[in-house]
Amino acid sequence: MDYALLAATALGAIGLFLMLPRDRMPLVRLGMLLGGMAVIGFFLYLLRSVGESHLAAATGGGVPIPFYLFGFIMIAGAVGVVCQPKPVYAALYFVLITLAGAGMFVLLLAQFMAIVLIIIYAGAILVTYVFVIMLASQGSTGGQVTAPDYDRKASEPFFSVLIAFLLIGTTLQVLFPSDGKVIATPSGHPDQLMAMNIGEVAVPTTAPAADQYVSAAHPPTDIQVLGINLYSQYALSLELAGILLTIALVGAVVISRKGEPKTHILGSGTLPTE
């Protein structure tokens, strides 16, 4: 049990609880302060654990600023989505999360996934969200400026924050055990520490030589490796993903079409039940 970590988690939970939307919000600023303190305390804890590990000592330590920057933006963006009463702003906060997430992916040397994340999430899914939000909020508020009531009040905030606190608390305690490693280091990998800088990664000499474009002189890029992996090991899954996308396409059309009979072409589209 690591009490410093537990304290930071609890602080974050209280901060989140105070920030959740409700009728009157006198303590939002306090919540933001507590939440900010929790995140900063958590980062300090991470820094300490980096400082203590032997590899950091071997390589001279240092503060991995990009990680903390992106991490902070992601967490703050998530809190923003959860606590923002207006859906449009919440969607914009979510764009922030995806952008910072793409940054994280670049730090993890998954450049292709970073681009995919931005294109699919920020570019496609979020735009659709914003469209639907516009469509829906136009009618529901009837021109009102304020958000509707159900957006301004959180339901069961205490209970939900408690569950999430238990979940995050347990996971973090497990992730940072007092007695060292959590999962075994894979063979052929120097240590459980991960390189930050792309230039530092040693390219293994055992490149997959099956492909003519890949040789020791021209090591495969991550897209090539990913593509080979996708179309060999996950070929069947790829087919299934295609089928699922088709089902969703048909399903979305079927669900949202209006159920007016063909015989009443000029029908208003309202159904008999209403």
Partner: peptide, 13 residues
Amino acid sequence: MSQIELYHYLAVG
């Protein structure tokens, strides 16, 4: 140069 552990990413996740 600076190094960073796997668990930091997992924690953010």
